[in-house]
Design a protein around this nucleic acid. Sequence first.
DNA 1: TCGCCATGTCCAC
DNA 2: TGGACCTGGCGAT
Length: 289
Amino acid sequence: MPEGHTIHALADRLESAFGGRPVRASSPQGRFSSGAARIDGHVLETATAAGKHLFVDLEDQVLHIHLGLIGTFPVRPFDPDDPDGPPAPTGTVRLRLIGQEHVADLRGPMTCALIDADRRAAIEQRLGPDPLDPKAEPDRAFARINKSRKGIGALLMEQQVVAGIGNVYRCEVLHRLSVDPFTPGAEVTESAWAEIWSELTRLLPLGVAFSQILTMEDQVVEAERMVADGSSEEITRTLTGERLGDFFERRFLTYQRAGEACLGCGTCIASEQVAGRLLYWCPQCQSRH
DNA sequence: TCGCCATGTCCAC
DNA sequence: TGGACCTGGCGAT
């Protein structure tokens, strides 16, 4: 599930479900028992995403969470009048947070730890600009891209270059812009980078609003219309983390479509391991020549 | 039931 | 660059 949009949506959801009040914290699985004990009863003040990192401020403590490849952290409402309280955790729950009428169960994170302000600053400092951060400086990313011989498809996956992009967005954005993923960073022009950045800042907020990666143009247009007229708000609010990605049909241009026809030209979508993950692209639409 | 795969990252060689 | 690790779901057996 988790590219940057997931973490930003999660931060919003945590803050609206638990913000400004004490939370009960526990570790049903036991692997975070002492950490949970240290935050139990503390007021959850803010939850902030930086790329794929989540920081939860609980009074003077900072909870750092990274979902990795397989982590989930659904926030669900429960009936506060039910004498049984929230439903018992199922599966392997590293951390459970309980508020007035919400419960959130963290499973399978790569990182779940209490850290200090210095550590947090160090993590944030290492990250490239995040397209979901209004203050992000895309030039910082271009400076790195511009002096690299690695392909743009590999560079987009590096969190020091751009924060929050993962395998789906890199494949899809490059196809949307007809960019060859193997174009060396040094050959990516400033205007080509500007287009990529602009595409990221267009698509990622839709991913946050719908908790789903949307890259098919018809879906993007429909999602933008819903954001503009306010009809997405109800959906954003009711997406509980349990049934995410159900609003739009799951469809992609290239991602997991190896061997299928490119929707632009009919050529077979190719796939190959790049930067540790399977890259998907159209060798025809996305060729430099 | 088993094994493999996944929108991620780190570390050892 | 290959493998380990976090966990759950799904297709193959």
